[in-house]
Amino acid sequence: MLLEPIFWSLFSLGGFITAFLFPVTLFLLFFAAPFHLWPTDPAAYSTFGGHWKEPLVRLFFFVLIGGSLFHGTHRLKFMLMDAGFKGRSAEAFLDVILNGVAIFGSLGALFYAVRGWLF
């Protein structure tokens, strides 16, 4: 069965998620404090750990991680195919590995998002 329509849908959804949410998140977590561009350090353990108690924040990071993984692995698949990783078996191999990373990564994010909240 052709799975591409399903993975393309997730890829597109992930494209919207990463485009709209990634730049601001990465800026706040990775650059705001080291470059002194922000009054506080949003990534500090006490600050981030404090926000992490809120369900909305957990949902946000689950969506962000899942979306970016489905988006990026799909693009990586086509970049590798373009670079010469071709043929039915090569494509099946890429599908299993890359979609596996996306699926297990999303499940992992879901696990940490509900851990300590729902159970």
Binding site: L2, E4, P5, W8, R75, F78, D82, E91
Partner: peptide, 11 residues
């Protein structure tokens, strides 16, 4: 077009 050689190859 909904095949391996159809529109899905387009990047």
């Amino acid at each position: 077009l909904n095949t391996r050689t159809g529109v899905w190859e387009c990047t």
